[in-house]
């Protein structure tokens, strides 16, 4: 099942993992009393990595479709759209790491 549906799911799966991870880092940083600067840097780096990974996934998906040429399926093409949407979602949902107070 996943063998065929992955193009549709992978972009947002990366988003979901990153979302969970950032939320956990935010919580743990406060719990363990990290220095605010270090906490902020970790969060921003995490968000940047997540966005970079999603872009990487998109590049791979586009390359995959190019390589397959006419053999690429509808799922591959729709999957590209889903990953683009996931990247946009990552940029917007992770933007608060730049600004918002992490522990108050």
């Amino acid at each position: 099942m996943i063998r065929h549906l992955w193009p549709l799911l992978i972009g947002f799966s990366v988003w979901a993992l990153a979302f969970t991870a950032l939320y956990a880092v935010q919580y743990l940083g406060c719990y363990l009393g990290w220095a605010p600067q270090a906490h902020r840097v970790t969060l921003v780096a995490g968000a940047a990595i997540a966005i970079a990974v999603s872009v990487g996934v998109l590049v791979l998906q586009i390359a995959h479709v190019r390589r397959l040429g006419p053999a690429s399926t509808f799922m591959h093409r729709v999957g590209i759209g889903a990953t683009v949407a996931a990247i946009a979602a990552a940029i917007i949902t992770f933007a608060p790491v730049l600004l918002a107070s992490a522990c108050t």
């Binding site: 917007i92 933007a95 608060p96 600004l99 918002a100 107070s101 108050t104």
Partner: peptide, 20 residues
């Protein structure tokens, strides 16, 4: 519209926080 709203809300929210 959503981005503008989110930025405004975030800034306003920061302003209202009980920060030390």
């Amino acid at each position: 519209i959503l981005i503008a709203l989110l930025i405004t809300a975030l800034l306003l929210g920061e302003h209202l926080l009980p920060k030390p």
